[in-house]
């Protein structure tokens, strides 16, 4: 009974925490005022919008997000240097773009969204489309000689970790 009540009151606990943090940052000076108002918003907004958002996203191992974030941050920095070098110094005719077809093992929408976002932010790849049943991801690689290797790297480096986090 009690847990059901708490679930009704806080339909999305992560969203509530995020709202409090965002309000703190917007107010831009730590004070008890902004903390209280942020907490009110954090309770009120998820409660008011719960009807439009019935499913609670599942994150089974949230602590695994930290190493994943570090890996992605490192990849973003190195990827940008690689892309900058390609853009500045490689003549257009030498750039070999290719479509990469990534079959997906992850099923939950949150995990696929996270994977697609990660792919777009990292090494010379942009995720462009999902297949109509959601079993494959279409990725465009800026410069690669071996599309298969790119797909293998995405599956090994990101999808494996996301599977651990979300499923």
């Amino acid at each position: 009974m009690a847990t059901r009540f708490v679930q009704r009151l806080f339909p999305h606990p992560l969203l509530s925490v995020a709202l409090v943090i965002i309000w703190q940052l917007l107010a831009n000076e730590p004070s008890i005022n902004s903390l209280v108002f942020g907490a009110i918003l954090g309770v009120l907004l998820p409660f008011a919008t719960a009807a439009y958002w019935p499913n609670r996203p599942q994150v089974t191992r949230p602590w695994m997000l930290i190493p994943y974030g570090l890996v992605v941050a490192w990849d973003i920095i190195t990827a940008n240097i690689t892309v900058a070098l390609i853009v500045l110094f490689k003549p257009n005719r030498n750039i070999r773009s290719a479509w990469v077809n990534v079959p997906l093992d992850i099923r939950t929408p949150e995990a696929i969204t996270a994977l697609a976002g990660t792919i777009t932010l990292t090494p010379g790849t942009v995720s462009v489309d999902l297949s109509d049943e959601g079993h494959a991801l279409l990725v465009h690689a800026l410069h690669t000689d071996d599309p298969e290797a790119v797909a293998r790297k995405i599956k090994h480096r990101y999808e494996r970790r996301l599977k651990e986090i979300f499923e």
Binding site: D129, S131, A136
Partner: peptide, 9 residues
């Protein structure tokens, strides 16, 4: 062609 489906979305 998509790896496991018919078409892209």
């Amino acid at each position: 062609k998509p790896a496991r489906d018919r078409l892209w979305a």
